[in-house]
Every structure is written in C-alpha cells, then in structure tokens.
Design a protein around this nucleic acid. Structure first.
Length: 546
DNA sequence: CAGTGAGCGAGCTTCCGCTTGACTT
C-alpha cells in the first residue's frame, strides 16, 4: 500500500499526475463534489444560523467508501482539488466525509498539470482556507434558498414544474428584454451612396461621407454628379497592426466553435471532453488564459520550426473577466507538435481550432498599411472616401483569424491601385441605395454565454447546462425564422443617365437564435414584478404573502 | 343495478456548481 494518497477532482487528471509522482503515491479522484444538500427539501436550518444539512450524494457513496479505506491505510492524504472556491470546498467536504485529521492531511494546489508544478506543490502544502470554504457555502445556501423558495411560487401561480434561480432567471430575462427591444425598434432608412471609379485597368470603390435621410436629397446629389468633376484631394497612409486573441477559455471556445463550426455549446463541451480524456487537450472547463512554461516553449519551438523565428512572439495574456478564478490553464493542445488529433471529424475540427488559436496567440502581430483616399466632387461639399488595407507582414494571420458576430454587409478592404493627389477620376457608376438601421441582434447560445460571463453569472461548468435548462423549461426556444420581403429604392447613374428602381430584398431571417416563449415572458414579468428590487422592498415592508 | 363523474387529498416538481458514465433514443 502506498504511503501517500493524493485526491484530485478529475480521473483523467489523476492518471496523468500518478505518472509524475512515482510509487510512493496513489492518486485517486473524487469525481467532483462528494457531498451536497439533498435533492429534496430546503435542508437548511434557517432558525439556527442557516446550517446546511449535507449528505453524501447517492452516486458518490461508492467512491467515498473507497477513499475512506485508502485514506485509513495511508500515512498522508494530500487534498489536491482545484485552486478555486469550489475546489476548496470539495477538499473540506472530503476532510469531513472521510474523517481526516489535521496531522495526516495536507492541502496542495497547482494550476498546470506539469511534473515540475506538481513536485513544487508537494513541497509547499498548506491547510484548508476556511474563509474560501465559507464563501462557497454562502453561495450554495443562497442558491438553494432562492431556487427552492421561488420555484414553488411559480408552481402555484403559473404552472407546475417551473423553476427560477439566480442564473437561469437572469438568462431568460436577457432574452425576453432583447426580444422586446427588437419589437419596439423603429427602423429608419437612409441612402448610402457608393461610387466605382476607373483607375487604369482596375476599379476603386468609394463611399460618400454623408448618408442622406431623404430620397430627394440622394437624387439631387446623384443628379449633381452628372456634371461634376472628381479628383483626388488627399491621400493618407498609416501603419496599423492586428494582434492575436488570447488562448481559449470555455466561454471563448464555445463562441468560436459556434461561429466557425456551427456547434451548439453542449456539442462543443462533449467533443472537448473526449479530446481531454484522450489526452489531446488540457482541461476544457476553465476561465483562465494562462499557458504553462512548457506550453509557451512548445509553441515557440513549433512556430520557429514551421514559420521562422520572426513569427514567434512568446507572451502571457491576462484575463479580462472579473469573476475569473483561474484554477486551470487555458484550453490548449497537450503537445504543440501534434498538429492533428481526434477520432472523428468533429473532434478533429475542434482540435484544429484549439491548435491554431493557441499557436496564433504566441505569434507576432500582423503589420498593415491602411490607406485613406479623399475624393472631391466639384460643386458639392460631400467627399467620397476609399479605404484600402495592405498586409505588410502576415504574422499570426498565417494560421488563424477570429470569427465575428457581425451581420452587417462586409466591406472587404483590399489593395488600392497606385494614385496621386490631384489626379482626375472618371466613374463607372454611382449609386445611392436605400438602407435600413438594424435592430439589436437576437442572442445565439454562444452570444448568451458571452453576455453571462461579462455579467459574472454562471461558471465554465454551467454555461452549457444553463442553456439547456432554459430550453427544457420551455422558457426559450432555439429556432430558425424566415425573413420578410422588403422593398427599397435604388438610384443608379451610368453613362450620364440616371435610372431609378424599386428593388426587393429578404430581411430579418434568423438561424439558430434564441426566442422567448409566452411562458418565458410571463414568468420573467412575474419575477420582476414581485421579486425585482422594488418587489422585494414592497413585500418586505408589507410582509405580504403571495 | 351498474356505470359515470364530481370532489377530495396526497405526492411530485425546483436551485447552482463540481465531476463522469449509465442510461435511452
């Protein structure tokens, strides 16, 4: 029997660590939390200091018995659960459930799974941080009280089996409020004027720096263009750069896999889990953008070998999200020199995304040259503006470009032909087209996760389950909607003649967007009315029961 | 007389966050 028992949260992690520590150490996993409030009833003694009544969860009885036996036989038990609020609580629960005494128990933490990090952790044990444990208990108790007091009110007043809680009710409210914003949105139209100028054998596109509100003003401008002369008034070149994004966290992986691969957040997580269990990537539930020393070196080596030393720019990123607890590394390939991994197409594509994002994060900025051309229209104050962008050094763009959520028509900026100030220009065509302002976008699963993270609501392990809960309760549906036909005006000037047309386009089509249901809106209004800030104040004052 | 239906009462649902399988479909 080994002298030392090390307990971590995840079995895959246990397997890896056992290899680092040698024969004196047995490494086991708790499979997450081992104790919790029971499923039924509040189970909190509100009269006596809100004392929680914890029980060993049914699915953890076997593992707790096994850990009990192993801990009795060991000289020392090392509680090596994650270095965050929940991890500290898991260690404390293990100590309670296994009846561990202080003399034979040590608490260690590490936030990367490397041999040096583990060995260093063993030399610096500490005791359980009871303040952090209490913070977790406060979180747990509050969530139970809110969820189990509020939900039955909904059963009575609205419909059985509904639910409310600190996280899910906010998620639903965000979707409901966005839908109402969209319904109240008054779209206005304007005229966007674009010219195509002949420059040698190529064509340069330029947009007018004024948008006309009225059809008659747009028409008057295009009319004036018939006789106007066009010349280059100004030519400005400015250097620019693009920097790579930080390596993936759970939330950014979910967003990018949704944009680039069309995965739902649940799909992303289950595919990532398989890659993790096969040892291809690091832990997939993380809020950290940190990379270990070995990862940084591995990336540098790989970039230098594949692209040259001038493409390498080794750096550490700092988290932007305020609630981050950073118990793990960022999501990255375990071995940087593995360019491909995975058993099926989904795993391979997700791995490819993770590999590229990680490698790109350690590559040099892309260097650009942005050119802005101002074109004078004789007899008018408005100017046409043409913009061009030339990549001087591609840097990280060689492997990876982050996707965007933008739905606006893409203005692909390319190279501009050679030009000089004062040069006269002739147009091929000038058009003024009626465009419409957009309502704020509906949430996708991934953009909702992004919003929740910004608000500090939910954790990496709960983003995907929360999204499925609000759909399971039928508060929210994920749907495609067909667009509507819309007419718009187009004024076109070619060869000195103006042609006016009514054209038709499809607008408002949605794909895989989140829509609130009637019940979602009703429950949100009910909760806001009775349990929003003023609702709580009202009920407290009047001690009114509902 | 047999079948129907109104009315009553009991028991169930639910939170968030940490982990995987063990289940169906």
């Amino acid at each position: 029997m080994a002298k030392n028992l090390v307990i971590v949260e995840s079995p895959a992690k246990a397997k890896t660590i056992e290899g680092f520590l040698g024969k004196e150490y047995t490494v086991k996993s708790s499979f997450g939390h081992v104790r919790d409030l029971p499923d039924k009833g509040i189970s909190i003694d509100i009269e006596n200091g809100f004392k929680p009544n914890y029980v060993v969860s049914d699915d953890k009885k076997k593992i707790v018995d096994e850990l009990k036996k192993l801990s009795k036989a060991a000289d020392m038990v090392w509680l090596a659960t994650d270095e965050d609020r929940e991890g500290e609580a898991i260690s404390w629960h293990l100590k309670e459930a296994l009846n561990l005494d202080d003399k034979h128990t040590k608490r260690i933490t590490f936030n990367e799974i490397t041999k040096t990090a583990i060995q260093k952790a063993i030399t610096k044990p500490r005791t359980i941080d009871i303040d952090l444990v209490n913070a977790q208990q406060a979180r747990r108790v509050l969530d139970r009280l809110v969820g189990f007091e509020l939900s039955p009110v909904l059963w009575k007043k609205v419909k059985p089996s509904l639910s409310a809680g600190r996280v899910q009710s906010v998620a639903v409210r965000l979707i409901v409020e966005r839908e109402r914003e969209i319904n109240n949105f008054q779209s206005t139209s304007f005229y966007k004027t674009v010219a195509l100028f002949k420059v040698g054998s190529s064509v340069m596109k330029a947009e007018l720096n004024k948008r006309f509100a009225k059809h008659e003003d747009a028409l008057a401008f295009v009319e004036a263009c018939k006789k106007a002369a066009f010349s280059i008034e100004d030519l400005v070149k400015k250097p620019g750069k693009k920097s790579p994004s930080a390596p993936f966290t759970t939330s950014t992986l979910q967003q990018e896999a949704s944009r680039k691969l069309g995965f739902s957040v649940a799909r992303t997580m289950s595919v990532a889990q398989k890659l993790y269990e096969a040892g291809h990537i690091t832990y997939m539930r993380t809020d950290s953008v940190n990379l270990s020393e070995t990862a940084l070196n591995g990336a540098k080596e790989e970039i230098t070998k594949s692209f040259g030393a001038n493409y390498s720019n080794t750096k550490q990123y700092t988290t932007k999200s305020k609630g981050a607890q950073e118990a793990h590394e960022a999501i990255r390939p375990t071995y940087m020199n593995n360019h491909e991994a995975g058993n099926d197409a989904a795993e391979q594509r997700l791995y490819d995304l993770i590999w590229k994002r990680t490698i790109a994060s350690q590559m040099a900025d892309a260097l650009l040259e942005r050119t802005t051309v101002t074109i004078d229209v004789s007899g008018r104050n408005e100017k046409f503006i043409a913009e061009g962008e030339v990549i001087k050094f591609d840097g990280f763009l060689k492997v990876y470009m982050e996707g965007t959520d933008d739905e606006t028509d893409d203005n692909t900026e390319g190279m501009l032909p050679p030009l000089k100030v004062g040069e006269k220009l002739n147009y091929n065509e000038i058009s003024s087209t009626q465009r419409f302002t957009h309502h704020p976008p509906r949430y996708t699963e991934a953009s909702l996760v992004k919003k929740l993270e910004e608000l500090g609501i939910g954790r990496p392990s709960t983003y995907a389950p929360t999204i499925s809960t609000v759909q399971k309760r039928n508060y929210v549906v994920k749907e495609d909607r067909e667009g509507k036909k819309r007419q718009y005006d187009n004024i076109l000037l070619t060869n000195g003649a103006i042609k006016e047309e009514k054209k038709e386009e499809n607008t408002g089509a949605e794909k895989s967007k989140l829509f609130p249901t009637d019940i979602g809106m009703l429950v949100t209004d009910f909760l806001v009315q009775h349990f929003g800030y003023y609702g709580l104040w009202f009920h407290g004052k009047r001690r009114k029961r509902i």
